[in-house]
Design a protein around this nucleic acid. Structure first.
Length: 513
RNA sequence: GGCCCGUUCGUCUAGGGGUUAGGACGCCAGGUUUUCAUCCUGGUAGCAGGGGUUCAAAUCCCCUACGGGCUACCA
């Protein structure tokens, strides 16, 4: 194993969404490509936003995709604990160190005071006022207050936060692995809170401390972190630590319109935003998942791998292992990508077609049982083979192929009226009788029976075939008719045909009369 | 408002000084097929705008426009 160590560090504030999955995927690919370690760390420093079940959901989702961490929460490893709430004691001494170095200071402003301050500024159309070198002397902190007052407030202990003290007049440079040279003026940076009133650190401190302690070498994260990376670089510097390499990924955007993909877009555009179904306690709503919608995890992974990255060739279909081999962070795209529902469905179809019939059967069998269909494994395998080219989503097998399990209640009557000719009734009766008498009810035998009958009686395929299909399946859409009939079985086909011919005749008589 | 990032067919993208601007999805047409689907062939459609630099700009520079992110005791 190389020394490459990357982490996926979600916050358990809700279900993992597709953008998070892509971040996890890129981290995973980069780790595997470099024979490194992929770590899962849970960033739950905000107790107010903690959502029960979210952490479990995140792990289940990663598992469904096969993005299994080598180390981290739920796995273990020598750099634990991997849940930040359990690392609370670790952060204290680092905060203390910064304070002692004079690189951080205590603040006593309450949230209410800060909010009021901001609102006052905004009311006066003074935008972008931040807590920084220019404003801090007007606030209540250990820099503006006397030593005595500071000590008194510190002893009281309520409402004490710690802010980072940013040096003035500096330029902070770093190289983003996907965006190139980045440069920020320290004078523009706000002095962020690094330790909150409840004693928990904020992201900015916890993230840096943990990445350092966990020996993270490459940070691959969302674009929303780009502006605060300057703070992060500075903190590394203040501690005298070497900063990891940074890659900031652009966001995944809504399929139509503008803006980033949000959790409500799924319902709006009819596609899932989350890997698995999620019941939201707050909204009292269930959000659809890729799994339940009938997406194959490998197809979703392949699709999202190409939202913001490309291999530089014309090839598009890759297994996870192949992606590992060809993944190159240098080819990550800088601009945001809209989620293309049509293309995600196309990928899924490609993966369904490529999936071995036995595996499809395993997937389909429980679903068939749920629907009350009692069929054999062999039946399911053959069914999968016949229907796979007609299914974009897994449930399509059962909607487009329902006639394999039961005669549809609604048949294509319009087509029946159009194709069925009363004068052909004797031919159909004869064909049904032939089928009934067959010793071997195989597709090839059926084919020769039907084709020779048509030839012998100088009939057209168009007069016979559509009616046989409609009679046996109730619809014009489906796989090869003879194969379909073989799978349906002699008894089913003969009985369906007898019923159907009666029905077609009645339909036709009603139409004429 | 400020700071930062971005902009090639409708969408995902290749292309990084000289290309008929390439591929994929979608869409359209044709072929294969007893139907549908698959598959095959072809078509449709793009360098945000304006200035430079250069013999030559999609490509380099500047400006504008548009899109996005950040601007919390959220991550």
């Amino acid at each position: 194993m190389s020394n490459v160590r990357v982490r996926f560090a979600p916050s358990p504030t809700g279900p993992l969404h597709i953008g998070g999955v892509r971040t996890a995927l890129y981290n995973y690919l980069f780790a595997k490509k470099n024979d490194g370690t992929f770590i899962l760390r849970i960033e739950d420093t905000d107790s107010k936003r903690y959502v029960p079940g979210a952490e479990e959901y995140i792990m289940k989702s990663l598992e469904w995709f096969g993005l299994i961490p080598d180390e981290g929460q739920g796995i273990g490893g020598e750099y634990g604990p991997y849940r930040q709430s359990e690392r609370k004691d670790i952060y204290g001494k680092y905060v203390q160190q910064l304070v002692e170095q004079g690189d951080a200071y205590y603040c006593f402003d309450t949230s209410e005071e800060l909010t009021a301050w901001r609102e006052k500024n905004e009311a006066q159309k003074i935008y972008g006022v931040k807590y920084n070198h220019a404003s801090r002397m007007n606030m209540r902190n250990s820099l503006s207050l006397s030593k005595e007052e500071t000590d008194r407030l510190l002893k009281e202990g309520d409402n004490v936060t710690v802010r980072l003290k940013i040096p003035t007049g500096r330029t902070i440079n770093f190289t983003d692995a996907v965006r190139g040279e980045m440069s920020f003026s320290s004078d523009e940076l706000d002095e962020k809170i690094i330790l909150k009133g409840d004693g928990m650190p904020t992201y900015h401190l916890a993230n840096i401390v943990d990445d350092h302690l966990m020996k993270i070498t490459h940070v691959i994260r969302g674009e929303e972190w780009l502006p605060s990376t300057a703070h992060h670089i500075l903190i590394y510097e203040l501690f005298g630590w070497t900063a990891p390499s940074f890659s900031h990924l652009s966001l995944i955007l809504k399929p139509v319109g503008s803006g980033k993909l949000s959790k409500r877009d799924g319902a709006k555009f009819g596609f899932p935003v989350f890997p698995l179904e999620w019941f939201d306690e707050k909204d009292q709503k269930t959000y659809q998942g890729f799994k339940e919608d009938g997406y194959l995890p490998e197809a979703v992974l392949n699709f999202i791998s190409l939202l913001g990255w490309n291999p530089g060739t014309d090839e598009e279909i890759f297994t996870l292992d192949e992606l590992v081999q060809i993944f190159d962070p240098e080819r990550i795209v800088k601009s945001g990508a809209k989620y293309d529902v049509d293309k995600s469905r196309w990928f899924n179809q490609q993966y369904i077609i490529a999936k071995p019939n036995t595996e499809l059967a395993d997937l389909l069998m429980p679903m068939a049982k749920e629907r009350g269909y009692d069929v054999s494994e062999d039946f399911m395998i053959k069914f999968a083979e016949l229907m796979k080219e007609r299914a974009e989503m897994i449930p399509d097998f059962f909607t487009a192929g329902s006639f394999f399990f039961e005669m549809p209640a609604e048949i294509d009557e319009k087509m029946a009226k159009k194709k069925y000719k009363l004068e052909n009734r004797p031919h159909f009766d004869a064909l049904i009788a032939s089928m009934e008498g067959m010793q071997q009810f195989t597709s090839s035998a059926l084919e020769s029976v039907v084709k020779s009958y048509i030839a012998d009686h100088e009939l057209s395929f168009g007069a016979i075939m559509p009616i046989l299909r409609l009679g046996a399946c109730g619809t014009m859409k489906g796989p090869d008719l003879f194969e379909t009939m073989e799978l349906l079985g002699q008894d089913t086909v003969v009985s369906r045909m007898k019923d159907s011919i009666e029905k077609f005749t009645a339909l036709k008589n009603a139409q004429n009369g």
